[in-house]
């Protein structure tokens, strides 16, 4: 009986590692795919509208896949204490500009106006890759649900950095607006997604701690444009 249990454990361990390795490999392919699509979209721009539209949709889906894989890989590594959490001081604006740059092709393709509202030289402490992962997820989500406007806001207040992604879409359904998103709540289906992104983002927020304060993620409706708001608070 014991032996059997042991071999099961070993199997599942190997499988988990195998899964993580495959995810890594898939990410590589997706990176290529996304790059190729973005270049093609650029070439096709203004010439072949139906083709551009199809390519744009493809790029969106590839991005979504990439974000999902990145999140799965990070969650796996964080849970196994293998993720190199690296909380450093960063110029917030520079990081946000890179997040916008990464999402620019979709914004242009869908004609979405994005306002970046962030002071030029403010610094804050966070793990750049994790926060970019959470923001990319939020942007990818908002791009799908907004009418035509997005706003990325950063403010430092009361010893914390507040990062907001706001849109002018229909907002989150009432049932989801329960204040802080807990990382351990389990998976919910909403806005047509598995909830992986929210789970990941809440986990990322919790990894940011300072002086006894713990980071948090909340979703709400309203903001400057009256749509959905994704709010990260990092002490």
């Amino acid at each position: 009986m014991h032996e059997k249990n042991n071999s099961n454990e070993t199997d599942s361990f190997v499988f988990a590692d195998f899964l993580a390795l495959s995810v890594h490999d898939m990410k590589n392919s997706l990176g290529m795919l996304i790059g190729a699509l973005e270049s093609t979209i650029k070439e096709a721009q203004g010439r072949d509208l139906p083709l551009s539209a199809r390519l744009g949709q493809m790029e969106y889906e590839a991005k979504r896949l990439n974000n999902n894989l990145l999140q799965l890989l990070c969650i796996y590594k964080i849970r196994n204490e293998r993720y190199p959490v690296d909380i450093q001081e960063h110029v917030i604006r520079t990081v946000l500009e890179e997040v916008v740059a990464a999402n620019r092709p979709q914004l242009v393709f869908r004609g979405i106006q994005l306002d970046l509202d962030c002071p030029g030289d403010t610094l804050w402490y966070f793990d750049k890759e994790l926060i970019c992962g959470a923001l990319n997820n939020a942007l990818n989500n908002s791009i799908q649900h907004t009418a035509d406007k997005l706003r990325l806001v950063a403010r430092v207040a009361d010893g914390a950095l507040i990062l907001r992604v706001e849109d002018n879409g229909g907002g989150y359904p009432e049932s989801l607006l329960q204040g802080e998103v807990a990382a351990n709540k389990g998976i919910h289906y909403y806005r047509g997604s598995t909830g992986l992104g929210m789970y990941f983002s809440a986990m990322v927020a919790h990894l940011h701690q300072n002086d006894g304060n713990i980071g948090s993620l909340t979703i709400e409706n309203g903001g400057a444009y009256g749509g959905g708001c994704f709010v990260l608070r990092l002490p």
């Binding site: 990410k27 590589n28 997706l30 990176g31 996304i34 790059g35 973005e38 270049s39 650029k42 990439n66 500009e97 890179e98 740059a101 990464a102 620019r104 092709p105 890759e129």
Partner: peptide, 12 residues
């Protein structure tokens, strides 16, 4: 980190 796009790379 991949994926990289043109604007990101140029800025960096």
């Amino acid at each position: 980190l991949k994926p990289i796009n043109e604007e990101l790379l140029k800025g960096r």
